[in-house]
Design a protein around this nucleic acid. Structure first.
Length: 272
DNA sequence: ATGGGCACCTGGCTGC
DNA sequence: TGCAGCCAGGTGCCCA
């Protein structure tokens, strides 16, 4: 998916067109997402004014006068703002039509994403309430990561991908942050020094910030709110670069599988 | 509690 | 050209 930088880029892209607009209609073409789109979603949303568009981890929260939408882009989802009359393509599952004549269009070929409606505090929702702190906030720091890794024998890469421990970091940025911090992805989390965990925290914040600045990373499907891809792919050090020379030391980048996901690393820069 | 594996789904690419 | 097999940005859930 869309990891944190792509979701944040989407949020920034769609928010100006949504804020203070009223919902004129909702068109649901495909209800079968990760969880079914509520049958009565059009009735729930139509006539409501949109207040704010927030992000929590990789979830987008669209707050309305009454209730909120919780949107997740899954692996292949995107949200775009376009004229409501734009013909729908395959995989354009849902439109939220605004009083401006524009529509927010949710597309997701793999349908791992979701669009849910909740009344009350969306942060208290089952999917959100146990999430780790936001990685770009001060509370996410070396001390936090050290506390989380204490007694954990799982590989550090797996820890970075566990949303109860760290949010926003997916398969791309986990590899990239570990490279920047010069840490072997297979190292058990509890074997890392305090210094390494502080460096890793800084690397996570840095790579996410730089990726947001570049509009995210597009490998295949991802596009931002205006349909443009993200440009951080050119800045990746290891992800999808196996066999290519390390940008730091020229050693060939290697790929391995951890928890059924590809991990990319430089055996020289990230040796144990 | 922790960690590992599977499932959900479509599409694109590779190799026979 | 066709088709099987494999891979892909996530994460909830089940089991040991």
């Amino acid at each position: 998916m869309p990891e944190l930088p792509e979701v944040e880029t989407t949020r920034r892209g769609i928010a100006p067109s949504l804020k203070q607009r009223s919902i004129r209609a909702v068109v649901v073409r495909e209800r079968r997402l990760r969880w079914p789109v509520p049958r009565n979603l059009p009735a729930l949303l139509t006539g409501q004014r949109i207040r704010t568009v927030r992000r929590r981890a990789k979830y987008l929260l669209i707050d309305l006068q009454r209730g909120s939408l919780i949107v997740h882009l899954g692996m292949s989802g995107s949200l775009r703002v376009l004229p409501a009359t734009t013909p729908a393509q395959t995989h354009d599952h849902l439109d939220i039509v605004l009083d401006s004549g524009l529509a927010l269009r949710f597309s997701d070929p793999r349908r791992f994403g979701c669009v849910l409606f909740v009344t009350g505090d969306p942060l208290a929702h089952k999917l959100l309430h146990r999430l780790a702190p936001e990685p770009l906030q001060a509370r996410f720091n070396g001390d936090y990561l050290q506390q989380v890794c204490r007694g954990r024998r799982a590989a550090i890469k797996a820890v970075l991908m566990n949303s109860r421990l760290v949010v926003g970091v997916g398969n791309i940025y986990a590899s990239e942050a570990l490279f920047r911090a010069r840490i072997d992805p297979c190292r058990p989390a509890n074997k890392l020094s305090s210094q390494q965990l502080h460096a890793l925290t800084r690397a996570i914040k840095q790579v996410l910030t730089l990726a947001i600045r570049a509009g995210g990373t597009t490998l295949r499907d991802y596009v931002g709110a205006n349909g443009d891809p993200g440009y951080f792919r050119q800045k990746l050090y290891v992800y999808e670069r196996s066999g290519k020379p390390c940008r730091r030391c020229r050693t060939a980048i290697r790929q391995l599988t951890q928890a059924q996901r590809s991990t990319y690393y430089c055996p020289t820069c990230q040796g144990s």
